[in-house]
């Protein structure tokens, strides 16, 4: 058995790394959000002030952006759940030998990063893109659907990017469904609807919850997708923080925006944990 001392030695590199590249910047971020930057200067004034938070909560530009970001996240989560439930069911129950292939296709957006798929979607939904081109040549529409630079366009991109985060936990949950549970329910008089609402969905709830938390958090902090598909017309919290940090160079204010985002993530995490505890069978 390892002595406590050498065990600590084994953990040390990971702890040091975490402390150095995560904890320290995080604390700096928290501190910086309370600093200020006098107008016209790049020097930081380290006298603590809540001015940035006041500005975020009172300026309608930021509050609208915050509301829009949360709305986009909720909508993406809901759409992903609606798409992923049947998809995961199909993968687990019907795909058979195509299961690996289908899972790989679903995972592709995750492995190629955010930029490439997003640019691909620009080609699909742009005014001269595949979608509008096809619909126009079929004579179904006269003028292009305006998707680029709208919330709908961003939603398409976000759903595409984060669908795997919903599908994977659901597939894992559905794989663990007890065999024959549906058959047992049906033999006891449950119609398909009752089988889903009373058996399948409750048993998949942990997977659905995990997927929802992942998609919501990923969407809330998504940067590339809203930036490109929003064409700069639809500011979200992440693009606002980017603006402040990289264009305005107001790091303290950008830090405050980031802290607000992190606070929302923490709240979502706590909420998810609370729901998980309340789920039947959570004790094990």
């Amino acid at each position: 058995m390892l002595a406590a001392k050498s065990a600590r030695g084994l953990v040390a590199p990971a702890v040091l790394l975490t402390a150095g590249v995560f904890l320290a910047p995080f604390l700096l971020l928290l501190a910086m959000s309370l600093w200020s930057q006098p107008p016209g200067s790049l020097m930081l004034d380290v006298t603590p002030t809540g001015e940035h938070y006041r500005r975020i909560t009172t300026d309608s530009y930021y509050m609208t952006g915050l509301a829009r970001t949360i709305w986009l996240s909720l909508a993406t989560t809901a759409i992903c759940a609606a798409l992923a439930l049947p998809l995961a069911w199909w993968i687990v129950r019907r795909a058979g030998r195509f299961r690996g292939l289908v899972l790989a296709v679903v995972l592709i957006p995750m492995v190629c990063g955010a930029l490439l798929p997003t640019l691909g979607i620009v080609n699909l939904i742009g005014p001269l893109g595949v979608l509008n081109g096809t619909l126009k040549s079929l004579g179904l529409i006269d003028r292009s659907w305006k998707l680029l630079g709208t919330q709908a366009g961003i939603l398409i991109g976000l759903v595409h990017a984060f669908l795997p985060l919903m599908v994977l936990p659901l597939v894992a949950a559905m794989d663990r469904l007890p065999r024959d549970a549906e058959g047992a329910a049906m033999s006891l008089g449950a119609r398909r609807r009752a089988v889903w609402t009373r058996i399948i969905l409750p048993l998949c709830a942990p997977g659905l919850l995990a997927g929802s938390a992942l998609v919501f958090c990923a969407t809330l902090t998504a940067f590339v997708t809203p930036l490109i598909l929003g064409q700069g017309k639809i500011p979200t919290f992440a693009t606002m923080a980017y603006q402040q940090a990289s264009l305005v160079l107001d790091w303290p204010f950008a830090s405050a925006l980031a802290v607000v985002m992190l606070a929302i993530l923490a709240a979502i995490g706590a909420l998810g944990w609370a729901i998980r505890q309340a789920l039947p069978g959570a004790a094990r």
Partner: peptide
Amino acid sequence: PAWDRDIGLVFQNYALFPHMTVAQNVGFG
């Protein structure tokens, strides 16, 4: 359909509903 047959079925692996208590399982039908 199975749900209209009034036929009791006991599976080899029992297929109990893990998220329900014993009473809820027995009372499901």
